[in-house]
């Protein structure tokens, strides 16, 4: 039975041609925001053309991307969950964590802003207002970078939202969570890029922004081949080097300007990291 499955598989591989040239494929584990905003649709083909590597982009939350890195199931990570990244680096499976770009998180809510967050001084005050008035809040709840940031903001506000009736957990990506928040006329936290890219279909507006605690920082991390011999080290290294190279940084600087009026990301390669 097993042999027959393998035989039919072998047949399938032959039929499908060059799908599995392992040496030339790089597994990039990244966040949904980089895919949903469309940035990777520009950067990945550019990299593939330049180097001949094929990139397999697996768009999951930062938490899952880091988990893939921990098991050596990815070659390079592009993630935005600084605290989880630092823990990951301290544990040893990562190499060469480098700053790539940033944008910021924004607190979104219904156009009418029933909780009056626009008047709140800063993100912590805004989150306290949400909890005090029991306004519906939609959480990613998927261990993504955005979710990690959201938990940090609740902590800063001195509120534990877990289990409250107004706290909805979707467990899904940013795009899907924005749709839910929009339909439920609820508040949510999003990275600015995904929000701008999806704004046309959403009944949501920015109700709090600009606070220093809302910075959203993306790093690239290579996976250490010394820990996981099966990792495509050359491919991961090439992709990381590409992301911080001048041409890629230029794409990041201008990406989305034409469609959304303002860029979605700000390039940061080579800047001091803190």
């Amino acid at each position: 039975m097993k042999n027959r499955i393998l035989a039919s598989l072998a047949g399938a591989i032959l039929c499908l041609g060059p799908a599995a040239f392992a040496q030339h494929s790089v597994i990039l584990a990244t966040t949904t925001s980089t895919q949903d905003s469309g940035l990777l649709d520009v950067l990945v083909p550019m990299f593939q053309k330049q180097t001949g590597f094929q990139v397999k982009t697996i768009a999951v939350g930062s938490g899952q991307a880091i988990a893939m890195g921990r098991k050596g199931e990815a070659d390079v990570l592009l993630v935005h969950s600084p605290e989880a990244e630092k823990a990951f680096m301290a544990d040893g499976p990562g190499l060469n964590r480098r700053l790539v770009m940033h944008n910021d998180f924004v607190v979104l809510g219904p156009q009418a802003d029933p909780a009056g967050l626009k008047a709140a001084p800063g993100a912590a005050a805004a989150f306290r207002k949400l909890a005090a008035g029991s306004f519906t809040f939609v959480s990613r709840a998927d261990q993504s970078g955005t979710h990690a940031q959201e938990k940090k903001l609740w902590k800063g506000a001195g509120v534990d939202p877990a289990g409250r009736p107004w706290y909805l957990e979707t467990g899904q990506g940013m795009g899907q969570t924005l749709n839910v928040a929009s339909e439920k006329k609820a508040y949510t936290l999003s990275d600015r890029g995904t929000f701008l890219a999806m704004r046309k279909n959403l009944g949501l507006a920015i109700v709090s922004e600009g606070d220093a605690s809302l910075a959203n920082i993306y790093h690239v991390i290579e996976i250490d081949p010394a820990k996981f011999p099966k990792v495509n080290a050359a491919g991961g290294k090439a992709f990381a080097a590409f992301l911080v190279s001048a041409p890629a940084q230029e794409v990041i600087r201008t990406f989305g300007k034409d469609r959304f009026g303002s860029p979605l990301f700000f390039p940061d390669a080579g800047k001091k990291d803190n």
């Binding site: 591989i13 499908l16 799908a19 599995a20 697996i58 199931e73």
Partner: peptide, 9 residues
């Protein structure tokens, strides 16, 4: 060893 994950196969 077959390197099949994330392929059509």
């Amino acid at each position: 060893g077959f390197e099949l994950l994330y392929t059509p196969s």
